[in-house]
Nucleic acid binder design. Sequence first.
DNA 1: CGCGGGTTATCTCCCTTGAC
DNA 2: GTCAAGGGAGATAACCCGCG
Length: 292
Amino acid sequence: MVKISKPSFEKVDPSFGSSFSFKSFNQENQNRNHTFWHYHPEIELVYVNGGSGKRQIGSHISYYQHGDLILIGSNLPHCGFTDSLTDNDKETVIQFSPDFLGKNFWEIPEMRNVRVLLERAKNGIVFHGEDKNLIGEKIEALSSLTNYKRLLGLLDVLNMLENAKDFTLLNAEGFVLDTELEDHNRINVIFNFVKNEFKRNIALEEIADVVSMTVPAFCRYFKKTTGKTFVQFVNEYRLVHAAKLLHEKQISITDVCFESGFNNFSHFNKQFKKFTGKSPSVYRNEIKFAVS
DNA sequence: CGCGGGTTATCTCCCTTGAC
DNA sequence: GTCAAGGGAGATAACCCGCG
C-alpha cells in the first residue's frame, strides 16, 4: 500500500497591521514552510540574496546559484528547495492577494503595466543579472519601513519588476491546471510523490495506481497537464538534483548518478549531456574553473 | 600491465500514443 | 476504458584514458 501525501492548500495570513504578508528568513530563523508542494491564490514574490537550491514552479524544475528572485502567480503550484541558509544569506517572501488593494485597483490606467506583469506571473518569472540584485536590495529594504511606506515600496518594486529586461518565463510550455479542485489535487499528489520517491525507480503502473488511473489514462493526463511525458519529468527532476550534487558535493560522478536515482552511468551521461549540453565531468570541471 | 573512472554502442523492454 | 505498434528509456558490456 502506497502512502499518499495530501495536496496542500496553503492559507496565507497577512502580517499584523498590514494587508499583505512580509516575511524574512535567515540562519537563525529558518522556519519556512514552503519546502513542500503547495499553491495559494496569493501572488508570491521570493528573493534569496545568496546560496543555491532547487526550485519547482508548475512543471518547471531548475537549479539556481547566487540567489534567486522569482514571482509566482495565483494558484501556481510551487516548491522551494533552498538549502539551509548560512552566513549572510537571507530569504524574503512577500505574499499578496490579487485584490488586496480592492477589486479594481489594477484596472486603473496607472497600474496597467503591473496588471500585465501579474498576468505574466501566472507562468512564474525568474529575474536575472543587475535587475535581480537591484530589485532584491529594494525588497530587503522594505523590512525596515513602516506599514504605510512598505506598501508604497511594494508598488515601487512591482513597477521595477515590470520594467526589468532580464527575465525568463519558467513555465511557458503551458502548465494547465483544471479549475476543478479534484484535478488540482491529482497533480499535486503526483508531484509530491515524485519529490519524495525520485531516488528510486517509479513504475508507471505504480504512480498511475496512486491517483487511481489506468496507465494509458495517466500518460494522457500527465502530458496534457504538464506538457511533458512522465518519464521526461522524472528525469528532469533527477538531472536537476544531479547538477546540484555536482556543484555542492565532492563525490564521484558515479555516486552522483546513483544518488540522483539513475541506475546506470551510460544512461545518466547521455541524459545529462542532452539536458545541459555537457557531460557531467565537463560540467563539474567548469565549475571548479569558475571558482578558482 | 591492471585498475578505477568516464564514455560510447547496441539491444531489449516498457512507456507513450493512436485507433477503436 | 482496451489493445497494439513504435520509439525512446534503460541495462549490459565494450571501449577509452590516465595513473601507479
